[in-house]
Amino acid sequence: MLSRVADNLYWMNRYVERAESLARVVEVNQDNLLELDDNIELDRFWLSSIHAFHAHEYIDHEKESSAECFFLFSDSWPSSIRNCIFSARENARMVRDQLSEEIWVELNSIYHFFRSKDAEVSFDQTPQQFFQKVIRFSLVFQGLSDATVNHDEGWLFMSLGKYLERADQTSRALDALTLKEKKPSRKDLIAALRICSALSAFRRQYRGELSLRNVAEFLLFSQDFPRSMRFAIRRIDSNLHELSGVPSGNFSNEAERLAGSALAAVNFTNIDAVLARGLHLSLDELQLSLMDVGQKIFETYVMSPLELQNVNDDQSMQAQQ
């Protein structure tokens, strides 16, 4: 298929997944805020989230009415939910012929919701419903992707986008715990699990033994939970092999090699080793290696490395004087 189409499908899914994660982050944080009463603590609370998203350079404290609004509606931050939805639709629009009508209709309707004032009004008056709308959209979108689109090359790129974003978001949720100034409280741990919608799955496995060690172990290493790092990386690895037709365990390009090595990294370590090295450091490395995988997918299937940062440009012309 055309490289550009593959790229559009990949980014469409990344943006949808990102919008969903962000909706959970803001929803969970907002819930927790209700229990806080002093402003300093409140600021500190949001600060850790903003840092986990590397969004601090985009925030303009004069302009934003609140941190939530920044996350949801910011024009300047490319990853605000609104921008994610816009970007997802823009990517979809360029490859509409590859999508099912149902997917387009879903994406289009959430786009119009965010384009109008409805989104802000809904968030203001019924925030719960607002978050549910965004999250439901993403879930419906994923269901439709699985149920109404051919599971061919294009679908593999969609899946790659989804899992790379998901692994990234899960690592950020965990990382937010390490960025706190104090040891994470019970409330913080629950928040991290809820952001990954992992609370009940975690409880079933650990019977309520809530500790940083257990939470980290679950979100990093769970074999079966679809938002754990290991699960996502396994999917990335298998998608890449399906794409190239090379059997798992071998590699034919850099993306496969790096994905295989990231998978080995989560398969052949354990929580004790991770904590011994430092959770933040380990997560950082994992995030970087996944960014590399994304980069290499792009280089292998979409464009050559130089074209990545560059555009076709005209030579400057000299005025005749």
């Binding site: 298929m1 055309l2 490289s3 550009r4 593959a6 090359e153 794409l243 299937y301 979409v302 464009m303």
Partner: peptide, 15 residues
């Protein structure tokens, strides 16, 4: 941008 001309031939960039 999906097409590229090299040495007098036109190609499309695919995966």
């Amino acid at each position: 941008r999906d097409l590229i001309a090299i040495d007098g031939y036109v190609y499309m960039r695919t995966t």
